[in-house]
Design a protein around this nucleic acid. Structure first.
Lengths: 138, 138
DNA sequence: ATGAGTGCAAATAGTTTGCAAGCTG
DNA sequence: CAGCTTGCAAACTATTTGCACTCAT
């Protein structure tokens, strides 16, 4: 079991959430993925019938609340999740044709936080996704 | 009629798209809004029955293609549009409770473009939305 | 007049909710 | 064994599509 999964499980325990087979399976899928995936995509990768699609949605929602996963949005509005958030905040560059994804470490989180706070806003979060057409799809 | 609307109309003509009452009405609504709005929200602001909701969706899609409007995504995935893009690229800070919106001029578009190009990607676009809880909603 | 644009109905995609039954701590 | 979780069905929200009709150019 990958370290990412173990960290996730630990966090679940710490937050008083239960560790079920379904949750472990979903964490495994996220851990082995190399790009953010939607609830449906994660579900599709699960060992046959590990759990219901609805459960996948519910688990991802919980995971996000306790920061086990980070949530993003695709160009079309679909929500996507990737494991390992925490101190590893980053973004993605996605090919709008084939879906190929590259990690981007650029982030202006601090500046945004500062600006938002100057407006009196708190609990700042941001979503950023970069899209383009990759070399193989041009 | 606001300048923003006139610009939009001009662009429609230039691109060979037709200028209809519905399109003008939608542009008017966008021009009078002070924050990005979804297709449904724009539709709700239209003078009673100016057009169908489907038409609003279709027009906004066209507007985006010719850059008359800029598209963003809400935290929940809803697509939102605001007029006046062009050389006026910017982002928004939105209160996740009351929807209050502030304009943010921070943007790392160039760095993103550069990074994306180093991966061989072209036609780079990005979506960024900042969320928080505003002073009145804390 | 001709094809872009529109309205209406219906289909989709993605996600959420209600409720009874099951499993974790 | 209490109540968090799950599964199944069904509701929902946001958006898209098919098709005949209309209107801008």
């Amino acid at each position: 079991m990958s370290e990412l999964v173990e960290n996730g499980i630990t966090l679940l325990r710490e937050k008083g959430l239960r560790v079920t087979e379904q949750r472990k399976a979903i964490l495994e899928v996220l851990a082995s993925a190399d790009s953010p995936m939607s609830a449906e995509e994660a579900f599709a990768q699960l060992p046959s019938e590990s759990c219901d699609l609805v459960t996948a949605y519910r688990c991802l929602e919980q995971f996000e609340k306790i920061n086990v996963v980070q949530r993003g949005v695709r160009e079309n509005g679909t929500k996507v999740y990737c494991i390992g958030h925490g101190h590893d905040h980053h973004h993605h560059l996605t090919c709008r044709n084939c879906g190929r994804t590259e990690r981007i470490d650029l982030c202006m989180g601090e500046e945004l936080e500062e600006t938002a706070k100057s407006f009196g806003f708190v609990e700042i979060a941001h979503v950023m996704e970069v899209f383009g057409t990759c070399p193989s799809c041009v």
